[in-house]
Simulated scan of single mutants.
Amino acid sequence: MLTTISWEPVRRACRLRHPIVRETLAELVGTMTLVFIGNSVIANNAVNAMNNEALGYGVALAISVFATGGVSGGHVNPAVTVALSLAGRCQLNRVLPFVLAQYIGGFIGAALTHGLYFDLFKKDPGRYSTLYGIFATYPELNRDFKLQNISLGGAFLDQVMGTALLMYGIMAITDKRNTNVPKGVVPLAIGVTLFGVITCSSSNTGAALNPARDFAPRVYSYIIGYKDVFKYCDHFWWVPIVACHLGAVIGALVYLLAIELHHPTGQHEDEDKAVLDVDADSAAAARSRRGHRGSAGPVRQGAARPYREPAYELSGRENRAYEVDDEPRAYSGRRGDSRSGRDRFADDYM
C-alpha cells in the first residue's frame, strides 16, 4: 500500500495560532520574495543586459501576492498597508507589525540577492562600481553623482504619482463591488499593474513605488561597503519613503471618494430605485401632455395619464391595488364609498 509523508504532527507543533503573528510572518516572507526576485532580475541585467526589470518586478509581485494573499492580504509594501488602513480595509492593529515585517523582509531579500550573485560582487572589492544600483533606486547621475535629468522635486512628484497610480489600481482590483475580479486572478492583475507603472516612469527615478523595496536594500548595500548610497543624487534616499507613502494615500482616497463610496448598497439601492422611478414618472407625464398613449411606467399621484385597460397596480394614498374595467365595481378602500374603480381612478389621479 502506497503511503505519503505526513506533516500533520509538525503542523500541530509549529503552527502559529495568533492571527497577527501569522499574518506578519506572511508579510515578511512575501516582501522578501518580492525583493529577492526583483533585485535578482536587476543583477542579471548587470551581467546580460535584457532590460526586463519591469516584467521581473511585476512577476515578483504576483508570486508574492499568490503566496501571502490568502493569509495577510499580500500587501508586501508599507505604503499599501498604511493606505489600506486609512481606507478601512486593514485593521489598525496590523499596521505596525506589517510595516516592520516588510522592511525586515526587504533586507533579507537583498541579502539573498547578494548571495545569488556573490561572485559578481567579488569583482568589485573596493565597491567603486555601479552595482549598488542593484539594491535600491537612483535617478540618472552625472559624474559628480548629482541629479542629471530630473530635479529632486521632480523625483518626488514622480514617486507620488507612480505610487498613487499603483494604489489606485490595487483598490480597483480588490473592490468586490466593482468588476469583482476572481480571487485567483487578483495577484496577476496587481502584477500587471505594477508592470505598467514601472514601464511608464522608471526612467525618471527607477520607480521604487515601495519603501521596503528601496530603503531596506539600500541599508544592506551600505553594510556591505557602498558607503555613499545615502549621499548620491542630492540625498535622494528619503524620497521613496515619504513620496511613496503620500502617493499611496492619495491613490486610495481618489478611488474611495470618486468610486467606492458611490456603490449602491442596501438602503441606498432603494433610494437609487426611487430616483429612477421618479424620473420615469416625469417622462410619462411629459408624454401624456404631448398626447402620446404608449407605455408610461409607474403611476404617481398628480401625474396626468389617459385611461388604459385592462388593469392598474397603484400605490397611491390608500396603498391598495384595484382593477379598472368597463363594469362598475364597488371600491372597498373607504367605508361607504361605492364608486366604481374607473370613477375612483378619475377623481384621484386624473
Rank of each mutant, 00 (worst) to 15 (best):
L276V: 09
P264M: 11
G247P: 02
I250E: 02
G247W: 04
D279Y: 04
A243F: 04
D279E: 11
V254F: 11
G266M: 03
D281Q: 13
H263C: 01
D279F: 04
Y312K: 06
L253H: 06
P298V: 14
V299P: 01
A304Y: 14
A243K: 08
A304I: 14
L246W: 00
A303I: 06
G266H: 13
D272R: 13
A303H: 15
Y307L: 15
A243R: 02
S288G: 11
L256S: 13
A296V: 05
H268P: 00
W238S: 06
A274I: 11
A248P: 03
D279K: 14
R290P: 01
H245I: 10
A283E: 10
R305M: 05
D272V: 12
A304N: 12
V249M: 13
Y232F: 12
H262K: 12
F230N: 05
W238E: 03
V299W: 09
H235D: 11
A285M: 11
V278C: 03
I241S: 08
H292M: 12
V239H: 06
V242L: 15
T265Y: 13
Q267G: 01
R293N: 04
V242E: 04
A283F: 10
G302H: 03
E271P: 00
H235M: 12
V275L: 10
V229I: 10
L253F: 14
D279V: 09
V229F: 11
H268T: 06
I241W: 10
V229P: 02
R287P: 00
C233G: 13
L253M: 14
I250M: 08
E269P: 00
P298F: 07
Y232S: 02
K231G: 09
V239E: 07
L256M: 06
D270R: 09
T265Q: 09
V229S: 06
L257K: 12
G291Y: 03
